[in-house]
Amino acid sequence: MSDSPKIAPFLWFDDNAEAAIDHYTSIFKNSKKLSVSRYGEAGPGPAGSVMVASFELEGQTFIALNGGPMFKFNEAVSFAVNCDTQQEIDELWEKLTEEGEPGQCGWLKDKFGLSWQIVPSILPELMQGAGKSNRVMQALMQMTKIDIQRLQEASNGG
């Protein structure tokens, strides 16, 4: 029986999978490289470059491939990161938007083009109830990086 998870996101990179893995494992505290397979002399990638690698971020296993330029990431798939504090939101936002681009409502694209949602863990609780839900959603739509205090104030009617 394998220790591999039954389901793992598989990420197709052009030729920078190793740089992406190094970047992500430097950002998330509970992370590590798991395995790396490199191209040999027969290719199709440059000999010694990463072919496929697996890594773990906060307990979630990912697989990365250097597959060439045929496919690009888009917002149809993103990774939601639940954060317990504003400090955690601020830190992840800063590191993941570096050379990337901020989006609306806590969404961003990192420098590799991968989409992330940096959201407070408390968000579902703040949105419970019809009136609260509308106020919180209105506040959320005005934000790029999420501000927990502003969402709490909106939830309380402020």
Rank of each mutant, 00 (worst) to 15 (best):
V36L: 13
E58H: 09
L57R: 14
D3M: 14
N82I: 02
E98V: 01
S26R: 11
K32V: 10
P69C: 04
G100A: 04
P5Q: 07
E99M: 02
K33N: 14
Q138S: 13
D110Q: 02
S31R: 08
S115Q: 03
K6C: 09
T97G: 00
G45N: 08
K145M: 06
G113R: 01
A64G: 10
A53T: 10
V50M: 10
P102A: 09
Q142M: 14
P120I: 04
V81S: 02
G103N: 08
N66I: 02
Y24A: 03
A76P: 07
L92G: 00
W12K: 09
L65N: 12
N16P: 05
F55M: 14
Q149F: 05
D147I: 01
I89A: 01
D84T: 13
G113V: 00
M127L: 04
F73H: 08
I63Q: 06
Q87G: 13
A8G: 09
G59W: 07
L92I: 03
D147R: 02
E91Q: 10
G40W: 02
A139M: 14
F73Y: 06
K6E: 06
Y24Q: 07
L92R: 01
T25S: 03
L108R: 00
N30V: 14
M137S: 10
S35M: 15
A154G: 06
K145G: 01
L96H: 00
K95H: 00
V36Y: 05
D90H: 07
S121N: 11
S121K: 12
V52K: 05
L65C: 13
T25M: 03
K72I: 03
V77A: 09
Q152D: 07
R38C: 01
I7F: 11
E94Y: 04
Q86P: 01
W107R: 10
S2M: 15
N66A: 10
G48W: 06
V81A: 05
S54C: 11
A20D: 00
G68S: 12
W12T: 05
L92C: 06
E99L: 02
Q117N: 12
E91L: 05
Q128T: 15
Q104A: 15
S115C: 02
R135W: 04
N30D: 15
D147G: 05
V77T: 12
S2V: 12
I27T: 01
G158T: 12
F62I: 12
A154W: 01
E18F: 07
A47H: 06
G40E: 05
D84N: 14
A80Q: 14
D3R: 13
A53M: 09
G157C: 07
D22E: 13
S35W: 11
Q152M: 10
N30T: 15
D147F: 02
M141W: 11
A64M: 10
I146A: 03
S155T: 08
K6G: 08
K145F: 01
V52F: 03
I21L: 08
S115I: 00
A47D: 08
F73N: 05
G131R: 10
